[in-house]
Design a protein around this nucleic acid. Structure first.
Lengths: 107, 107
DNA sequence: CTGAATCCCAGTGGATACTG
DNA sequence: CAGTATCCACTGGGATTCAG
């Protein structure tokens, strides 16, 4: 359950290369989904859970901690929300989304 | 062991959204590493295995199939190599690498 | 409602030995 | 060398329950 972070071994690589940590983190079930759900604004534990197909609270809690450890998400008076870092990550992903749509067409 | 592809459920999401498939695929152990190793040119099964910490042949074989299914890798007379799609993916990842290095510094 | 603690199961990754 | 077939161990994800 430890959070994938740069400069440490992660699933798939123990080189510590930062991008490997990104893929480990975002490749884990629900993490991308959670960040995606928060793009539009803060949400409470409960609503987040509902919006993520009623995922287990244990797992949601786990993911919140991971994303918080990674400084992508933080608590706010109105629930959980993306940090600045989290927001920039989401926009950085845009080109990858574009690539993915080309990929999708070529398959 | 089925390959994560667009328009089908993958780990973390059964929405079929293409980028989720990318993260499932690249989040799996060794896949990024393999693509990375092939960036400089074709490699044989054996050398690929050596360059990836002598990973199990069963797993390597499995990953090669996945990446081939995803059209990111193909066989060539001199071994395995990236496809055009595989190459564009690698370059598309550049901004993400840049983000990851900022992330690394902020942690 | 939030979130922590247990327990359980499947899937994934890995070691190994074997065949072409 | 390339690739396959078994078999096994582990961890990650999930259900459930309980506490703050």
């Amino acid at each position: 359950m430890n959070t994938p972070l740069p400069n440490q071994p992660v699933r798939g690589s123990h080189s510590g290369v930062a991008i490997m940590a990104v893929f480990d983190l975002l490749g884990r079930k629900w993490n991308m989904r959670i960040l995606w759900e928060l793009r539009t604004g803060p949400q409470t534990f409960r609503t987040l859970q509902e919006n993520c197909d009623n995922m287990s609270p244990s797992v949601l809690n786990n993911r919140i901690k991971q994303l918080a450890d990674a400084r992508l998400l933080a608590t706010s008076p109105t629930g959980y929300q993306l940090t600045e870092l989290g927001n920039t990550l989401m926009t950085t992903l845009d080109p990858l989304r574009a690539w993915a749509s080309v990929w999708e067409k070529q398959l």
